[in-house]
Design a protein around this nucleic acid. Structure first.
Length: 742
DNA sequence: AGGCTCTCTCTTTTT
DNA sequence: GAGAGAGCCT
């Protein structure tokens, strides 16, 4: 057989990895070393050379984007449909298993996937039921407790509280939450994996079936696996050949339970693991690589790896010290403009930052220079309120017993069903051990003396007041008629009916300002998305027998899709716009020109990570990921003062800058410029005073001018004094002495 | 019930 | 600075 096309154009290490024997292997693949390529070609190799049936191949990734890219490239290379291969994210694959084996997994066929927002809401409600003080017990913390436990494979019964009140309380929440999930047929993200893991452990035949079926397993981004995912792989892959591909230096999801140690554990716990190292980098210039290597060298816990390139050194890394975040943004936008004017595509440029909150000023600066851009992260499409509302109506059409959906839209748009009424429905549902939907129907249908509240409640609590009853009746009729009208309709028609009949479109569309318009557009986009969804999504039926129980309709499938595919908003490399994203979401991507903004102590490394050495190392790895995204030119920028979250902060340049050898870096100095137009008084009286100017004050000593605001007599300047820190002074009274730049 | 304002908190990263 | 929640007015 002619296999040259599979190994063509690869270096020796890549070739070895691709053609590795069928057993277990670990590929330590540095940034830009052709990792995805190796994975894709490995699959081809397995199928074409080793004669592995496509049925027998399972490939796991962490993001939906990586999964679809892999699917694409395998399809191209193999020239066959990838339908029989299982390629997906851990969550996607686990979900697929549970859809097939819901009975064995002891969950209702109509189970619903909870996304993080749903989860938070539910935890909040559970905590309210437990009468926990929200001040003392923040719900986010409880969510964190639950998710951490699940990510480590721990059910409530496995938890040892050690008599600690914190643990005891959260364990109670965990138990109650789990009960609520079980009752409502709700599975959160971690539950998908945990549950499918248990599914195998408790069903020998089933496990054996999948162990036999998947003879070859490939795992991407192995350094990102958490305990339960590792256990999942270990159970499934105990008899398979497993190829784990990862890079310990790019492990940036420790906060989500990922453990780099799984790389080491893998080579110990799996048999005969062959290790391959991909260290030749095809992406970045020599200088960029040197910087990356020097930086990551400061970390203690490493498997050890050194990237090299056969290419040129390239330009120095440029560093710009901005006066403030506006100046930083302006600088980045201007340099981007120059780059584009020089003939490059906007899509070649990435603006990376530590946290989403930084994106706004960058966005505004790009806007001013009319540079097309695209922001990733922040609120994703399916997380927007209007979209979630629409989905809730769609969910009610599919399954009116979904409490989460009823809670969400029973009074959205407002139709006269307030807290009191909903609380009464909840109470009734609890007493009758039924769903909100049924409780509502009950209470409206017969308001007889049947149900009695606790003795200490007044009679008014037992039934719904006339007005409320009518409102609830209206809601029930709306859903009933909607369901009826949706009968036999396609997905697009269903959303249309849902958003029009419910009044959502009108409600959101008439919200004040641009918001209303944006929401309306989003809803229209949802309609379009439903249109496209059509038949494109392949039903998760196991082609190897094991009958899938019950074919689901497209509507339920779409709702699952919306829950799992939270984004679709991962960067699109062929988009012709500047890409703004967090360092986390930049992993796996590459750009000729990269700006890393806000490289300041406290921001990056983030202040939340400063205490623990382990977390600091993770921040450094994050920086390493950022640096290695750059192909030709890399900029670091930081601001001496930054307005973030409503207050000013003064940060030192990040330690990461100092980690990089000075000879690789060059500082950009633009002295006689100011960041914003100065008021006339400012210019007239103090022509030579500018932002960044060094000044001396009789009392406070020396400092740097950070900002100015106000006009004429009332002009105020902000000066960061070396001795006493930042002060805002009235310019006319401050008596500042101008100093020369050093 | 709903809408308004005021106050408070929480500020990382995401499948 | 934004979003959530409480309190007050209609």
């Amino acid at each position: 057989m002619d296999v040259t096309h599979i190994l063509e154009g690869m270096n020796d290490r890549q070739r070895e990895a691709v053609s590795s024997p069928l057993g277990n292997s670990l590929v330590l693949a540095g940034a830009g070393s052709g990792k995805t390529r190796v994975l894709v070609h490995r699959i081809s190799w397995l199928v074409e050379v080793e004669d592995v049936s496509p049925h027998g191949v399972l490939a796991v990734t962490f993001t939906n984007k990586a999964a679809s890219e892999m699917r694409h490239r395998v399809e191209q290379l193999l020239g066959i449909s990838v339908r029989p291969l299982w390629i997906g994210t851990f969550h996607g694959l686990a979900h697929r298993l549970l859809r097939i084996h819901w009975r064995e997994a002891k969950i209702p066929q109509s189970f619903q996937v909870l996304d993080s927002d749903d989860q938070l809401r539910l935890v909040k409600r559970v905590m309210k039921m437990l009468d926990l003080d929200e001040q003392k017990w923040p719900s986010r913390q409880a969510v964190w407790f639950i998710n951490t436990a699940k990510d480590e494979g721990r059910r409530p019964r496995h938890i040892d509280t050690g008599g600690d009140l914190f643990n005891i309380t959260h364990l109670r929440v965990y138990e109650a939450y789990e009960e609520a999930c079980q009752r409502g047929g709700l599975l959160d993200f971690s539950e998908l994996i945990l549950r499918s893991h248990e599914l195998w452990l408790e069903n020998d035949d089933l496990l054996r079936h999948y162990q036999n079926r998947f003879s070859q397993i490939l795992v991407d981004e192995f350094q990102d696996t958490n305990a339960i995912q590792y256990a999942w792989l270990k159970v499934l892959g105990s008899r398979a050949g497993l190829m784990a591909v990862g890079d310990d230096d790019q492990s940036i999801y420790g906060w989500r339970g990922a453990r780099v140690e799984h790389i080491q554990r893998f080579s110990k716990e799996f048999q005969g693991v062959t290790i391959y190292r991909l260290e030749q980098n095809y992406r970045s210039t020599g200088n960029i690589l040197k910087a990356a290597n020097a930086l990551i060298d400061k970390n203690q816990d490493r498997l050890g790896k050194r990237l090299w390139t056969a290419g040129e050194d390239g330009d120095a890394i440029l560093l710009y010290a901005a006066y403030n975040e506006l100046d930083e943004a302006r600088f980045i936008a201007e340099r981007t403009r120059e780059w584009i004017d020089g003939g490059a595509s906007p899509g070649d440029v990435a603006l990376l930052y530590r946290s989403n909150a930084q994106s706004r000023v960058l966005e505004e600066a790009l806007l001013r220079l009319s540079i097309p851009y695209r922001i990733y992260g922040g609120l994703r499409f399916f997380e927007r309120a209007e979209i979630r509302n629409a989905l809730a109506y769609m969910r009610l059409v599919a399954n009116a017993d979904s409490d989460a959906a009823v809670e969400r839209v029973i009074n959205t748009p407002p139709r006269g069903i307030g807290d009191k009424t909903v609380e009464r429905l909840r109470q009734h549902a609890r007493e009758q051990d039924t769903t909100l939907w049924r409780a509502a129907n009950d209470l409206v249908a017969d308001r007889g003396p049947a149900d009695r509240g606790p003795a200490d409640r007044g009679p008014a609590d037992r039934a719904l007041a006339g007005r409320a009853a009518n409102a609830v009746k209206g809601f029930i009729e709306l859903i009933d008629s909607l369901t009826e009208q949706c009968e036999g309709k396609n997905l697009e028609e269903i959303v249309r009916l849902a958003i029009d009949n419910s009044g959502l479109m009108e409600f959101h569309g008439s919200e004040k300002g641009e918001r209303g318009l944006a929401r309306k557009e989003n809803l229209e986009e949802l309609v379009a998305a439903c249109g496209e969804f059509g038949g494109a999504f392949v039903l998760p039926i196991d082609p190897q027998g094991l009958p899938s129980q019950g074919t689901e309709d497209l509507l339920s499938e779409f709702l699952d899709h919306a829950a799992l595919e939270t984004g679709e908003h991962q960067a699109d490399s062929n988009a012709s716009s500047v890409q703004l994203m967090t360092l986390h979401s930049a992993k796996g991507l590459e750009f000729p020109l990269v700006f890393m903004a806000g490289v300041e102590e406290g921001l990056f490394p983030h202040r939340m990570s400063l205490e623990e050495p382990g977390r600091l190392e993770e921040e450094r790895r994050l920086c390493y990921v950022g640096i290695t995204r750059a192909m030709k030119q890399l900029y670091f920028t930081y601001a001496e003062t930054r307005r973030l979250h409503g207050s000013e902060s003064y940060n030192k340049p990040s330690r990461f800058i100092a980690d990089i050898p000075a000879d690789l870096m060059q500082e950009v100095r633009i002295r006689n410029e100011v960041t914003r137009p100065l008021s006339p008084a400012w210019e007239d009286d103090e022509g030579s005073l500018r932002l960044g100017q060094r000044v001396a004050h009789p009392r406070f000593g020396e400092g740097v001018v950070l900002n100015c605001e106000g006009h004429g007599e009332r002009t105020r300047v902000e000066v960061n004094f070396e001795q006493v820190g930042p002060k805002i002074l009235m310019l006319s009274h401050a008596n500042l002495e101008l100093l020369n730049d050093s």
